[in-house]
Write a protein that binds this DNA or RNA. Structure first.
Lengths: 145, 145
DNA sequence: GTACTACTTCAAGTTGACTTGAGGTCAAGA
DNA sequence: TCTTGACCTCAAGTCAACTTGAAGTAGTAC
């Protein structure tokens, strides 16, 4: 497969494929002239990368997990701790979601007067104290359900 | 309150407060000499901003919602649609979490041979097709539970 | 009156994950 | 043979949300 075939089949732009190769996330099996040649494995590999990204791993983390060898050799402990992190994230998001939903229907004259909303605010404020710790996550990823 | 007082009480660095002011997210009530003076409301406002960030709103979106007036005038429809988005995100994260957890205990010789893991991969791959749509979310925000 | 400290402005730098652009190469079709 | 189009490399640009640094000022302590 050439790069555009991989791009078409995976949905990952060619520029991103080159970028991933440069980062060591993927490898081409060789060249035909200038052109990269990939084999079918690349699609699994890309799926694995997409999965990792969805789970909140950085590209560097993913590169470490997938290793330079062909097959992924994923550390099970790491998986579990990531799953635990996801649990925490999910809980955060659920309370925020509930707060939003409540705020949307709350009859208090202004959100600021609603006790539930103020409680949520208090939580958010205390959350703000913990400095860093931002993660990207994919929206609209077809993973839902 | 001066800026360092606000910083201490809110946990938001002074540089960030200046940045937020420049962006129109917050306002100081005046100056003493050069120095900004804030009143107590600022803490609510910052909590609101933190909440918005946790929910996945961008600073621009938050600025629009909070408006230039003092009190937040939040569009209830927008809240609901954000809550719906959060539901989707939560579902995504749950399936990923379950997949990770399964992969961690799965007895298949390699994850690549495990049907459940491969199914998850397939989902991730199809998710990768939807181009953009990344969001930051706060980790370790005290919001959990 | 001078030193110190905490503030000020403004511009530029940082991070992660890419994308874009300029300029070059190569195989195939007219 | 010449042109076209798809690929190539490498450097630079983009975006959001900040942070950092340099250079200046104002109020307080001695």
């Amino acid at each position: 497969m050439d790069i555009s075939e991989v791009a078409k089949r995976s949905g990952v732009p060619a520029s991103t494929l080159r970028f991933y190769e440069e980062k060591g996330l993927i490898r081409s099996v060789g060249r035909q002239g200038l052109r990269r040649v990939f084999n079918g494995n690349i699609l699994d590999r890309l799926a694995l990368i997409a999965l990792g990204r969805s789970a909140g791993f950085s590209l560097d983390e993913i590169a470490r997990m997938l290793g330079s060898n062909g097959k992924p050799d994923i550390d099970r402990k790491l998986l579990i701790s990531k799953a635990d992190e996801l649990d925490e994230t999910i809980n955060n998001l659920r309370s925020i979601r509930d707060g939003l939903r409540h705020a949307a229907v709350c009859s208090a004259p202004s959100h600021m007067e609603c006790p539930k909303f103020r409680r949520l605010l208090g939580l958010a404020a205390s959350g703000a104290i913990s400095g860093d710790g931002k993660r990207k996550l994919q929206k609209n990823s077809v993973l839902a359900k």
